[in-house]
Design a protein around this nucleic acid. Sequence first.
DNA 1: AACACGATGGACT
DNA 2: GTCCATCGTGTTA
Length: 193
Amino acid sequence: MAPPLPATFYARDALDVAADLLGALVTANGVTLRITEVEAYRFPGDTANHARMGRTPRNTPMWGPPGHAYVYLCYGLHRMLNFVTGPEGHPAAVLIRGGEPVDGIDVFRDRRPDGSCDGPGKVGAALALGTADSGLPLSVAGPVVVHPGPPPSTIRRGPRVGIDYAAEPDRLAPWRLADASSAQVGRMGWPRR
DNA sequence: AACACGATGGACT
DNA sequence: GTCCATCGTGTTA
């Protein structure tokens, strides 16, 4: 198998990294997903970014070097997986919003009985992630690893979802990207095809 | 110390 | 479409 994506892969603008992550393979706790949907959270000037108010205990991994996981608890229930991007001290990240299971299907089926993995909370569940995984590197053997994978033939772009608190123009910025031909993509919020 | 709320998902009308 | 579970986190006092 090809080596994991190196830290230099992540050391770029989050939007560029997001596009190149579509098709990549993320492995954790016995399941591998081919990434089908992502969202970029940029810096500076992105009022949807968790780091918009500065450094806090939760978002500390975002301020560290690229190529690390940022996992946080949402609504007290869902663990959301992000990949830290950009140089150290630049708190940007890509949220992994969907994936197709390509390995560990039996385990995946135990965690996602209906087979769907078309939302960030579902990705966290499918990979059995916890906040203890926040800050771990992605480019070396460990609990969470990312390998290159076959890119989509067509990328769909639309505004990010669940960020009504953000100011214009961030709220409408088309920084949500997906494999246009995958079924493991959230249905809501896309512009007309 | 109190409090409001969320980068959601599942159930239900 | 609506409702709401569930709790860590950040902000405010």
